[in-house]
Amino acid sequence: MQEILIPVITLGGLGLFFGTLLAVSSKIFHVERDERIDEIVSCLPGANCGGCGYAGCSNLAAEIVAGNAPVSACPVGGKDSAEKIAAIMGTESGEVIRLVAHVNCRGGEQAKRKYNYEGIHDCLAASKVAGGPLECAYGCLGLGTCERACKYDAMHVENGVAVVHADNCVACRQCVEACPRHLISVVSEKQDVFVSCSSHSRGAELRRICNIGCIGCTLCTKACPTGAITVNDNLASIDYDNCINCGKCADVCPRKLIVNASESRFAVAE
């Protein structure tokens, strides 16, 4: 009897002791946690992509409850999640403009190559070898680092240049971070006209190295009715706040690099 009783009592005693300890300490060390945080987390996509600038969905939820982030801070969830979170927080979500990524280069096969790159299949690695395989120091290397960074199947390399498939894009900015040449920007979905070149090379030099890049001719500047386009340092750039998406710049561009996405959304040059 003894050899059964002792272990049963000892183990039972230990279990009781630890059970009481946990029960008591859960009262003593109880931390108030705002229930809204968990509710907001359930409204967020849960991808922990970091597109909002915080360290993950639960972190963003805590910041929203603390009032440091707006209810529409999640670019991935967009309008739906903003409205649900606004309902939890008891505020209005306001107008949520959907954002999409855009690649500011259409070079690809149109850009001349310095050498044949056969190293690690990664844009950053390639850009470290003698300034990259392209003659153009600004262009897309087309090795798909952004494609691999994209969790939403929205980024694909086509004809040697990265292209955004706007339907899938959630503006999480993973590709923006991944691109070693900083070619990708995130802009409003309503924006239709883009300067698809990032090269600051002079006109004559650019004609030699790329069949499509901006030569800084300023025809678009003259065509623009609102003065939204300026040419700085041999590269045209559009001020999206003033742009009315009339598409006149795209019509006059001799290099056809100003794309009007309303006609063929983010199409690649033939």
Binding site: L11, F18, L22, S25, F29
Partner: peptide, 29 residues
């Protein structure tokens, strides 16, 4: 108490309870 054959189960109990306890203490302090 001469019950060393109970080691594994006692250790699991102790470690599990301990980690729970430490987690609570850390969260608070």
């Amino acid at each position: 108490f001469d019950i060393v054959y109970m080691r594994t189960i006692v250790y699991i109990l102790v470690i599990a309870a301990l980690v729970q306890f430490v987690e609570m203490v850390l969260m608070k302090l």
